Amino acid sequence: MFKRLMMVALLVIAPLSAATAADQTNPYKLMDEAAQKTFDRLKNEQPQIRANPDYLRTIVDQELLPYVQVKYAGALVLGQYYKSATPAQREAYFAAFREYLKQAYGQALAMYHGQTYQIAPEQPLGDKTIVPIRVTIIDPNGRPPVRLDFQWRKNSQTGNWQAYDMIAEGVSMITTKQNEWGTLLRTKGIDGLTAQLKSISQQKITLEEKK
Rank of each mutant, 00 (worst) to 15 (best):
G114R: 07
A110F: 05
D61E: 13
A14C: 14
A163I: 15
I49P: 04
A14V: 10
Y117I: 08
Y72T: 01
L64P: 01
Q107W: 06
N160G: 12
T175Q: 07
T25H: 10
Y67V: 07
F97L: 02
N44K: 15
T129K: 10
K71M: 03
Q36S: 12
Q69A: 04
G114M: 08
Y28T: 10
Y28D: 06
Q203K: 14
K71R: 10
D149A: 00
I167Y: 08
G192D: 14
F2E: 00
V135Q: 02
R50H: 08
L148G: 01
Y105A: 00
R50S: 09
L65N: 04
L184H: 07
R41F: 02
G74K: 00
A95Y: 08
V135I: 02
I190V: 03
A163S: 00
D165C: 09
G159S: 12
Y117V: 14
T129R: 09
K154Q: 05
S17L: 08
A104Q: 07
I137L: 13
S199I: 13
S172N: 06
T136P: 14
T194D: 14
T20P: 08
Q46S: 06
L10W: 12
T25P: 09
R4N: 13
Q103K: 09
Y72E: 00
I119N: 12
V131P: 09
W161Y: 03
K188T: 09
E122H: 09
Y100I: 14
I13G: 04
Q203E: 13
A120Q: 10
A163H: 14
P66S: 09
W161E: 09
A96K: 05
L125R: 11
G114D: 09
R147L: 03
P140W: 13
E180T: 03
L42C: 11
T158H: 09
L64E: 01
A9D: 02
W161S: 03
E122I: 09
K29F: 14
T116V: 09
I59G: 03
K29C: 12
N141Q: 08
N179T: 12
F94V: 09
A21W: 06
Y72D: 01
K43V: 05
I49C: 12
A21N: 13
Q196T: 02
Y100W: 14
A96T: 12
A96Y: 15
E99V: 15
T187S: 13
D127N: 03
Q157A: 03
N52C: 05
Q80V: 14
L193S: 03
Q151E: 07
K210N: 09
A18E: 12
Y100R: 02
A92D: 14
A88W: 09
V77F: 05
I167H: 11
S201H: 09
E208F: 13
A168G: 00
L185S: 12
A14T: 13
T175Y: 12
Y100F: 13
K154V: 02
A51E: 12
T183K: 09
T136Y: 11
K211A: 12
N44M: 13
V131K: 09
F150E: 11
D61W: 03
G182D: 00
A163N: 07
Q62R: 09
P27L: 06
F39E: 01
W152N: 08
M6V: 05
Q107P: 05
Q123F: 08
A88F: 13
E169W: 04
S199C: 11
A104V: 07
V77Q: 08
K154C: 10
D127Y: 14
A22D: 11
K43R: 12
P47E: 07
T129C: 05
R143M: 03
T187Y: 13
Y112F: 02
P53M: 08
E45D: 08
M7E: 00
T176Q: 00
Q196P: 11
I174C: 14
G142R: 12
L184Q: 09
L197I: 04
K37R: 12
A19K: 03
Q103D: 15
A108E: 04
A35V: 14
G182F: 12
I205R: 09
A21V: 10
T183L: 05
K71H: 06
D127V: 06
R153G: 04
Q118F: 07
P124F: 11
Y93I: 04
L64N: 01
P140L: 14
L101A: 15
S172L: 00
A120G: 15
A120R: 11
Y112P: 03
Y55G: 07
H113S: 08
L42I: 11
L16C: 11
Y28G: 07
A88H: 14
P132I: 04
V171S: 00
Q115V: 01
A21F: 07
D32K: 06
P145M: 12
Q203G: 14
I13K: 01
E99G: 13
F2Y: 11
T86W: 03
F2Q: 02
T58L: 07
V146L: 06
E209I: 10
A104H: 01
P27I: 05
W152V: 11
T86D: 10
E169R: 03
A51H: 10
H113E: 10
A73L: 02
K71C: 01
V135E: 02
T129G: 10
G126M: 08
V8G: 03
T86N: 10
Q46A: 04
W152T: 03
L65T: 09
Q178A: 10
I119M: 07
G182K: 15
R41V: 05
V68T: 07
T86P: 10
L76F: 05
K102W: 12
N52V: 07
E180M: 02
P53S: 14
G79Y: 00
V135N: 04
I174W: 09
Q118M: 14
R50E: 06
E99D: 13
Y82T: 02
P121K: 09
G142V: 13
Q178K: 06
K71Q: 04
T20S: 11
R143T: 04
Q62M: 14
G189P: 09
T58D: 07
A75K: 00
P132S: 04
P145S: 04
P121I: 14
E91Q: 13
L109T: 12
V60N: 04
L30I: 02
G182R: 14
A14I: 11
I138W: 09
G142E: 09
A9T: 06
H113I: 13
R90V: 03
P140F: 11
P47W: 09
D149G: 06
L42Q: 12
A75T: 01
E33W: 03
T38S: 10
A14D: 05
V171W: 01
A22M: 08
R50C: 05
M6S: 01
P132T: 08
K211F: 11
T38E: 04
P140T: 15
E209T: 13
L56M: 15
S199T: 11
Q118R: 09
Y105H: 05
A22I: 12
D191P: 13
F97K: 05
Q162E: 03
A168D: 02
Y81D: 11
L65S: 06
Q157E: 07
V68G: 02
Y55D: 13
T176P: 00
K210P: 14
M173I: 03
L184A: 00
T206M: 12
E122P: 13
K188C: 08
I13E: 00
A168R: 11
R98N: 13
G126Y: 10
T20F: 10
L78S: 03
M1G: 00
G126A: 00
N141Y: 08
A96L: 13
K198N: 08
W161T: 03
G189T: 12
I138Q: 15
R41N: 05
T206C: 12
R98S: 12
Y67E: 05
D23F: 11
V135H: 07
Q202D: 14
Q62T: 08
T206S: 11
D54A: 14
I174F: 00
P140D: 15
R147E: 01
M31G: 02
T129P: 13
R4K: 15
E169P: 04
A104E: 03
N44Q: 10
Q46T: 06
L76W: 04
V8P: 01
Q80P: 13
A85F: 05
Q89V: 06
K3S: 03
V135M: 06
D139W: 15
V60L: 04
N52R: 12
N44E: 14
K177F: 00
K204M: 13
P121W: 09
N52E: 10
A108Y: 06
A34I: 05
K3H: 00
L5H: 01
A85R: 04
D191V: 06
L65G: 07
N52L: 05
Y67Q: 04
I119D: 04
